[in-house]
Protein backbone atom coordinates (compact mmCIF):
# COMPACT_ATOMS: atom_id res chain seq x y z
CA UNK A 1 0.00 0.00 0.00
CA UNK A 2 1.24 3.43 -0.81
CA UNK A 3 -0.27 6.04 1.42
CA UNK A 4 1.64 9.20 0.74
CA UNK A 5 -0.15 10.85 3.55
CA UNK A 6 1.74 8.94 6.14
CA UNK A 7 5.09 9.12 4.55
CA UNK A 8 7.77 11.66 5.32
CA UNK A 9 7.76 13.56 8.53
CA UNK A 10 5.83 12.15 11.36
CA UNK A 11 3.91 14.06 13.89
CA UNK A 12 5.69 14.07 17.17
CA UNK A 13 3.82 14.22 20.36
CA UNK A 14 6.42 13.78 23.06
CA UNK A 15 9.23 16.22 23.50
CA UNK A 16 12.60 15.07 22.27
CA UNK A 17 14.93 13.93 24.97
CA UNK A 18 17.41 16.79 24.60
CA UNK A 19 15.05 19.56 25.67
CA UNK A 20 14.22 19.47 29.28
CA UNK A 21 12.32 21.82 31.50
CA UNK A 22 15.45 22.03 33.65
CA UNK A 23 17.37 23.58 30.83
CA UNK A 24 14.70 26.07 30.05
CA UNK A 25 14.66 27.36 33.56
CA UNK A 26 18.32 28.02 33.25
CA UNK A 27 17.86 29.73 29.95
CA UNK A 28 15.24 31.98 31.37
CA UNK A 29 17.45 32.90 34.25
CA UNK A 30 20.24 33.70 31.86
CA UNK A 31 18.02 35.80 29.66
CA UNK A 32 17.01 38.10 32.43
CA UNK A 33 20.52 39.43 32.58
CA UNK A 34 20.54 40.49 28.92
CA UNK A 35 20.36 44.13 28.10
CA UNK A 36 17.64 45.32 25.88
CA UNK A 37 19.75 47.73 23.91
CA UNK A 38 22.07 44.92 22.97
CA UNK A 39 19.38 42.85 21.35
CA UNK A 40 18.88 43.09 17.61
CA UNK A 41 15.37 43.27 16.25
CA UNK A 42 14.73 39.70 15.28
CA UNK A 43 11.88 37.32 15.57
CA UNK A 44 11.34 35.64 18.88
CA UNK A 45 12.11 32.20 17.56
CA UNK A 46 15.62 33.26 16.70
CA UNK A 47 16.22 34.77 20.06
CA UNK A 48 15.96 31.58 21.98
CA UNK A 49 19.58 30.68 22.56
CA UNK A 50 20.42 27.37 21.05
CA UNK A 51 23.86 27.14 22.63
CA UNK A 52 25.08 24.43 24.94
CA UNK A 53 24.18 24.73 28.59
CA UNK A 54 26.64 25.77 31.28
CA UNK A 55 29.57 23.58 32.23
CA UNK A 56 28.42 22.94 35.75
CA UNK A 57 25.12 21.57 34.54
CA UNK A 58 26.88 19.01 32.35
CA UNK A 59 26.96 16.27 34.94
CA UNK A 60 23.31 16.49 35.86
CA UNK A 61 22.36 16.72 32.25
CA UNK A 62 24.05 13.48 31.30
CA UNK A 63 22.36 11.60 34.05
CA UNK A 64 19.00 12.98 33.12
CA UNK A 65 19.65 12.37 29.47
CA UNK A 66 20.14 8.70 30.02
CA UNK A 67 17.15 8.31 32.22
CA UNK A 68 15.02 10.20 29.73
CA UNK A 69 16.12 7.92 26.95
CA UNK A 70 15.45 4.82 28.99
CA UNK A 71 12.06 6.17 29.86
CA UNK A 72 11.33 6.77 26.24
CA UNK A 73 12.43 3.28 25.34
CA UNK A 74 10.24 1.73 28.01
CA UNK A 75 7.33 3.84 26.79
CA UNK A 76 7.89 2.74 23.21
CA UNK A 77 7.99 -0.90 24.27
CA UNK A 78 4.73 -0.48 26.13
CA UNK A 79 3.14 1.15 23.12
CA UNK A 80 4.34 -1.66 20.88
CA UNK A 81 2.81 -4.20 23.20
CA UNK A 82 -0.45 -2.25 23.37
CA UNK A 83 -0.59 -1.98 19.60
CA UNK A 84 0.10 -5.67 19.20
CA UNK A 85 -2.69 -6.54 21.63
CA UNK A 86 -5.00 -4.14 19.81
CA UNK A 87 -4.23 -5.71 16.48
CA UNK A 88 -5.02 -9.13 17.87
CA UNK A 89 -8.32 -7.88 19.28
CA UNK A 90 -9.23 -6.21 16.04
CA UNK A 91 -8.24 -9.03 13.75
CA UNK A 92 -9.33 -11.98 15.88
CA UNK A 93 -13.03 -11.91 14.97
CA UNK A 94 -12.14 -12.00 11.30
CA UNK A 95 -9.79 -14.91 11.76
CA UNK A 96 -12.56 -16.48 13.77
CA UNK A 97 -14.97 -16.09 10.87
CA UNK A 98 -12.51 -17.72 8.51
CA UNK A 99 -12.01 -20.65 10.90
CA UNK A 100 -15.75 -21.04 11.33
CA UNK A 101 -16.19 -21.17 7.58
CA UNK A 102 -13.87 -24.18 7.36
CA UNK A 103 -15.46 -26.08 10.23
CA UNK A 104 -17.10 -29.30 9.11
CA UNK A 105 -17.99 -31.25 12.22
CA UNK A 106 -21.04 -29.13 13.12
CA UNK A 107 -22.97 -26.23 11.72
CA UNK A 108 -24.10 -24.31 14.77
CA UNK A 109 -22.50 -21.92 17.20
CA UNK A 110 -19.73 -23.62 19.18
CA UNK A 111 -17.53 -22.60 22.06
CA UNK A 112 -14.11 -23.04 20.46
CA UNK A 113 -12.22 -21.31 17.69
CA UNK A 114 -10.13 -23.96 15.98
CA UNK A 115 -12.21 -26.38 13.91
CA UNK A 116 -11.83 -30.03 14.71
CA UNK A 117 -12.41 -31.07 11.15
CA UNK A 118 -11.37 -28.89 8.25
CA UNK A 119 -13.00 -28.77 4.84
CA UNK A 120 -14.82 -26.83 2.18
CA UNK A 121 -18.25 -28.24 2.98
CA UNK A 122 -19.67 -24.88 3.96
CA UNK A 123 -18.59 -23.23 0.74
CA UNK A 124 -20.02 -26.04 -1.31
CA UNK A 125 -23.28 -25.80 0.55
CA UNK A 126 -23.28 -22.02 0.24
CA UNK A 127 -23.13 -22.17 -3.53
CA UNK A 128 -25.16 -25.34 -4.10
CA UNK A 129 -27.93 -25.24 -1.54
CA UNK A 130 -28.59 -21.57 -0.96
CA UNK A 131 -29.42 -18.68 -3.22
CA UNK A 132 -26.07 -17.15 -2.52
CA UNK A 133 -24.91 -16.82 -6.17
CA UNK A 134 -28.11 -14.94 -6.90
CA UNK A 135 -27.63 -12.68 -3.90
CA UNK A 136 -24.06 -12.04 -4.86
CA UNK A 137 -25.08 -11.19 -8.40
CA UNK A 138 -27.82 -8.88 -7.16
CA UNK A 139 -25.44 -7.04 -4.89
CA UNK A 140 -22.74 -6.80 -7.51
CA UNK A 141 -25.18 -5.31 -9.98
CA UNK A 142 -26.53 -2.88 -7.40
CA UNK A 143 -23.02 -1.92 -6.39
CA UNK A 144 -21.87 -1.18 -9.92
CA UNK A 145 -24.95 0.76 -10.99
CA UNK A 146 -25.14 2.67 -7.72
CA UNK A 147 -21.46 3.53 -7.87
CA UNK A 148 -21.77 5.00 -11.35
CA UNK A 149 -24.98 6.96 -10.94
CA UNK A 150 -24.34 8.05 -7.39
CA UNK A 151 -20.92 9.38 -8.35
CA UNK A 152 -22.45 11.36 -11.21
CA UNK A 153 -25.14 12.82 -8.96
CA UNK A 154 -22.91 13.64 -6.04
CA UNK A 155 -20.20 15.23 -8.10
CA UNK A 156 -22.75 17.27 -10.04
CA UNK A 157 -24.38 18.64 -6.90
CA UNK A 158 -21.05 19.24 -5.22
CA UNK A 159 -19.61 21.03 -8.21
CA UNK A 160 -22.63 23.26 -8.62
CA UNK A 161 -22.77 24.17 -4.95
CA UNK A 162 -19.06 24.85 -4.88
CA UNK A 163 -18.73 26.94 -8.04
CA UNK A 164 -22.08 28.47 -8.97
CA UNK A 165 -23.82 31.28 -7.16
CA UNK A 166 -27.44 31.29 -8.13
CA UNK A 167 -30.77 32.14 -6.62
CA UNK A 168 -31.98 29.34 -4.39
CA UNK A 169 -28.51 27.92 -3.65
CA UNK A 170 -28.76 28.61 0.06
CA UNK A 171 -32.29 27.25 0.06
CA UNK A 172 -31.17 24.03 -1.57
CA UNK A 173 -28.33 23.57 0.92
CA UNK A 174 -30.64 24.17 3.88
CA UNK A 175 -33.23 21.82 2.43
CA UNK A 176 -30.68 19.04 2.12
CA UNK A 177 -29.35 19.73 5.62
CA UNK A 178 -32.78 19.68 7.25
CA UNK A 179 -34.10 16.66 5.43
CA UNK A 180 -30.85 14.86 6.05
CA UNK A 181 -31.61 14.99 9.76
CA UNK A 182 -34.75 12.89 9.43
CA UNK A 183 -34.17 9.23 10.10
CA UNK A 184 -34.20 7.46 6.77
CA UNK A 185 -36.35 4.52 7.83
CA UNK A 186 -39.28 6.81 8.25
CA UNK A 187 -39.93 6.61 4.55
CA UNK A 188 -39.50 2.85 4.36
CA UNK A 189 -43.17 2.01 4.26
CA UNK A 190 -44.02 4.61 1.65
CA UNK A 191 -41.13 3.64 -0.58
CA UNK A 192 -42.17 0.02 -0.31
CA UNK A 193 -45.73 0.78 -1.35
CA UNK A 194 -44.50 2.92 -4.15
CA UNK A 195 -42.09 0.35 -5.46
CA UNK A 196 -44.76 -2.30 -5.07
CA UNK A 197 -46.96 -0.34 -7.45
CA UNK A 198 -44.19 -0.40 -10.00
CA UNK A 199 -43.48 -4.11 -9.40
CA UNK A 200 -40.03 -3.35 -8.12
CA UNK A 201 -40.22 -5.23 -4.84
CA UNK A 202 -39.86 -8.85 -3.78
CA UNK A 203 -37.92 -10.68 -6.46
CA UNK A 204 -37.33 -7.43 -8.33
CA UNK A 205 -36.19 -5.66 -5.20
CA UNK A 206 -32.64 -4.97 -6.46
CA UNK A 207 -33.96 -2.68 -9.18
CA UNK A 208 -36.20 -0.81 -6.75
CA UNK A 209 -33.31 -0.55 -4.33
CA UNK A 210 -31.09 0.95 -7.00
CA UNK A 211 -33.66 3.67 -7.59
CA UNK A 212 -33.91 4.35 -3.87
CA UNK A 213 -30.15 4.41 -3.30
CA UNK A 214 -29.50 6.59 -6.29
CA UNK A 215 -32.38 9.03 -6.12
CA UNK A 216 -31.35 10.73 -2.90
CA UNK A 217 -27.63 10.33 -3.35
CA UNK A 218 -27.22 14.00 -4.20
CA UNK A 219 -27.67 14.67 -0.50
CA UNK A 220 -24.24 13.29 0.32
CA UNK A 221 -22.43 16.02 -1.55
CA UNK A 222 -20.51 17.42 1.44
CA UNK A 223 -17.20 15.64 1.08
CA UNK A 224 -16.90 16.24 -2.65
CA UNK A 225 -17.86 19.87 -2.21
CA UNK A 226 -15.19 20.29 0.44
CA UNK A 227 -12.70 18.92 -2.02
CA UNK A 228 -13.84 21.13 -4.91
CA UNK A 229 -13.61 24.13 -2.61
CA UNK A 230 -9.91 23.52 -2.21
CA UNK A 231 -9.27 23.72 -5.95
CA UNK A 232 -8.41 27.32 -6.70
CA UNK A 233 -11.08 29.29 -8.50
CA UNK A 234 -8.48 31.20 -10.46
CA UNK A 235 -8.06 28.04 -12.51
CA UNK A 236 -11.69 28.30 -13.59
CA UNK A 237 -11.29 31.95 -14.38
CA UNK A 238 -8.20 31.33 -16.47
CA UNK A 239 -10.06 28.68 -18.43
CA UNK A 240 -13.00 31.04 -18.89
CA UNK A 241 -10.70 33.67 -20.27
CA UNK A 242 -9.38 31.11 -22.71
CA UNK A 243 -12.91 30.54 -23.91
CA UNK A 244 -13.83 27.26 -22.22
CA UNK A 245 -17.49 26.72 -21.38
CA UNK A 246 -18.52 25.72 -17.88
CA UNK A 247 -19.16 22.21 -19.03
CA UNK A 248 -15.70 21.95 -20.50
CA UNK A 249 -14.22 23.30 -17.29
CA UNK A 250 -16.03 20.66 -15.28
CA UNK A 251 -15.13 17.72 -17.46
CA UNK A 252 -11.68 18.71 -18.65
CA UNK A 253 -10.28 20.68 -15.77
CA UNK A 254 -11.93 19.95 -12.44
CA UNK A 255 -12.64 16.24 -12.81
CA UNK A 256 -9.07 15.26 -13.75
CA UNK A 257 -7.85 17.27 -10.78
CA UNK A 258 -10.28 15.53 -8.44
CA UNK A 259 -9.20 11.97 -9.00
CA UNK A 260 -9.01 11.06 -5.29
CA UNK A 261 -12.48 12.27 -4.56
CA UNK A 262 -13.98 10.66 -7.65
CA UNK A 263 -12.47 7.34 -6.66
CA UNK A 264 -13.61 7.83 -3.10
CA UNK A 265 -17.17 8.47 -4.24
CA UNK A 266 -17.13 5.43 -6.50
CA UNK A 267 -15.74 3.28 -3.71
CA UNK A 268 -18.42 4.46 -1.28
CA UNK A 269 -21.15 3.94 -3.84
CA UNK A 270 -19.95 0.44 -4.56
CA UNK A 271 -19.60 -0.57 -0.94
CA UNK A 272 -22.98 0.79 0.13
CA UNK A 273 -25.23 -2.03 -1.13
CA UNK A 274 -22.96 -4.74 0.34
CA UNK A 275 -23.60 -3.60 3.85
CA UNK A 276 -27.17 -2.39 3.57
CA UNK A 277 -29.34 -4.75 5.46
CA UNK A 278 -32.47 -2.89 6.52
CA UNK A 279 -33.69 -1.53 3.21
CA UNK A 280 -32.73 -4.68 1.36
CA UNK A 281 -34.57 -7.10 3.61
CA UNK A 282 -37.59 -4.83 3.83
CA UNK A 283 -37.89 -4.35 0.08
CA UNK A 284 -37.36 -8.01 -0.71
CA UNK A 285 -40.05 -8.93 1.80
CA UNK A 286 -39.21 -12.62 2.22
CA UNK A 287 -38.67 -13.26 -1.48
CA UNK A 288 -35.28 -14.94 -1.30
CA UNK A 289 -34.47 -14.10 -4.90
CA UNK A 290 -34.52 -10.39 -4.22
CA UNK A 291 -32.10 -10.29 -1.32
CA UNK A 292 -28.70 -8.74 -1.36
CA UNK A 293 -25.87 -10.53 0.42
CA UNK A 294 -26.47 -8.79 3.74
CA UNK A 295 -30.17 -9.55 3.86
CA UNK A 296 -29.66 -13.04 2.48
CA UNK A 297 -26.94 -14.09 4.87
CA UNK A 298 -28.80 -12.61 7.80
CA UNK A 299 -31.88 -14.48 6.68
CA UNK A 300 -29.88 -17.72 6.86
CA UNK A 301 -29.50 -17.37 10.61
CA UNK A 302 -32.49 -15.28 11.66
CA UNK A 303 -34.06 -17.89 13.93
CA UNK A 304 -32.28 -20.07 16.52
CA UNK A 305 -33.13 -23.22 14.58
CA UNK A 306 -31.81 -21.83 11.34
CA UNK A 307 -28.78 -20.49 13.11
CA UNK A 308 -27.99 -23.96 14.35
CA UNK A 309 -28.20 -25.27 10.81
CA UNK A 310 -26.55 -22.47 8.87
CA UNK A 311 -24.12 -20.65 11.11
CA UNK A 312 -20.97 -21.93 9.44
CA UNK A 313 -22.51 -21.38 6.02
CA UNK A 314 -23.16 -17.80 7.05
CA UNK A 315 -19.51 -17.42 7.96
CA UNK A 316 -18.45 -18.87 4.62
CA UNK A 317 -20.70 -16.34 2.90
CA UNK A 318 -19.17 -13.59 5.00
CA UNK A 319 -15.70 -14.60 3.87
CA UNK A 320 -16.75 -14.70 0.23
CA UNK A 321 -18.28 -11.22 0.56
CA UNK A 322 -15.54 -9.66 2.63
CA UNK A 323 -12.63 -10.88 0.56
CA UNK A 324 -13.13 -8.92 -2.68
CA UNK A 325 -14.23 -5.79 -0.84
CA UNK A 326 -11.25 -5.87 1.47
CA UNK A 327 -8.85 -6.29 -1.41
CA UNK A 328 -10.49 -3.44 -3.30
CA UNK A 329 -10.47 -1.32 -0.22
CA UNK A 330 -6.82 -1.90 0.54
CA UNK A 331 -5.89 -1.10 -3.04
CA UNK A 332 -7.81 2.18 -2.97
CA UNK A 333 -7.04 2.99 0.62
CA UNK A 334 -5.10 6.12 -0.26
CA UNK A 335 -8.16 7.66 -1.85
CA UNK A 336 -10.36 6.59 0.98
CA UNK A 337 -8.10 8.33 3.46
CA UNK A 338 -8.06 11.46 1.32
CA UNK A 339 -11.84 11.52 1.17
CA UNK A 340 -12.41 10.79 4.82
CA UNK A 341 -9.87 13.32 6.02
CA UNK A 342 -11.09 16.01 3.69
CA UNK A 343 -14.66 15.35 4.72
CA UNK A 344 -13.88 15.55 8.40
CA UNK A 345 -12.02 18.81 8.05
CA UNK A 346 -14.60 20.45 5.90
CA UNK A 347 -17.51 19.07 7.86
Amino acid sequence: MTDELFEGEVFEFYPASEEKPQEIVEMEAAEDTFEISAMPEVAIADMVPAEEPEENAEEGKKKKHISQRTKNRILNTIIHIVLAVMCVVWILPFIGIVFESFRCESTGVVGYILPKQWGFDNYVRLFKETNFPRWFGNTLMMGVVTAVVQTAFQLAVAYVLSRFRFKGRKFLMNLILVFGMFPGFLTLILLYTWMYDWHLTDANAPYGLIIIYVASSGMGYYIAKGFFDTISKSLDEAARVDGATRMQIFFKLILPLSKPIVIYTILMGFMGPWGDFVMASFMANNAADGYNVAAGLQWLIDTPAKKNMNYTTFCAGGVVVALPITVLFLLLQKYYVAGVTGGAVKG
Partner: peptide, 30 residues
Protein backbone atom coordinates in the same frame (compact mmCIF):
# COMPACT_ATOMS: atom_id res chain seq x y z
CA UNK B 1 1.03 4.95 16.09
CA UNK B 2 2.46 8.31 15.08
CA UNK B 3 4.85 8.52 17.99
CA UNK B 4 8.48 8.72 17.06
CA UNK B 5 10.26 5.45 17.56
CA UNK B 6 7.32 3.20 16.81
CA UNK B 7 8.20 0.56 14.27
CA UNK B 8 6.14 -0.77 11.34
CA UNK B 9 3.63 2.04 11.50
CA UNK B 10 2.13 0.98 8.20
CA UNK B 11 1.45 -2.49 9.46
CA UNK B 12 -0.54 -1.29 12.48
CA UNK B 13 -2.52 1.08 10.34
CA UNK B 14 -3.29 -1.48 7.67
CA UNK B 15 -4.56 -3.98 10.18
CA UNK B 16 -6.92 -1.42 11.69
CA UNK B 17 -8.03 0.02 8.35
CA UNK B 18 -8.77 -3.41 6.99
CA UNK B 19 -11.54 -3.80 9.51
CA UNK B 20 -13.36 -0.83 7.98
CA UNK B 21 -13.61 -2.65 4.68
CA UNK B 22 -15.44 -5.70 6.00
CA UNK B 23 -19.21 -5.18 5.94
CA UNK B 24 -20.59 -4.53 9.40
CA UNK B 25 -23.32 -7.11 9.23
CA UNK B 26 -20.73 -9.86 9.04
CA UNK B 27 -18.43 -8.70 11.81
CA UNK B 28 -21.19 -7.54 14.14
CA UNK B 29 -23.24 -10.70 13.77
CA UNK B 30 -20.13 -12.75 14.47
Amino acid sequence: INKKGIKIKKFWRTILVMTIAIPQFISLLY
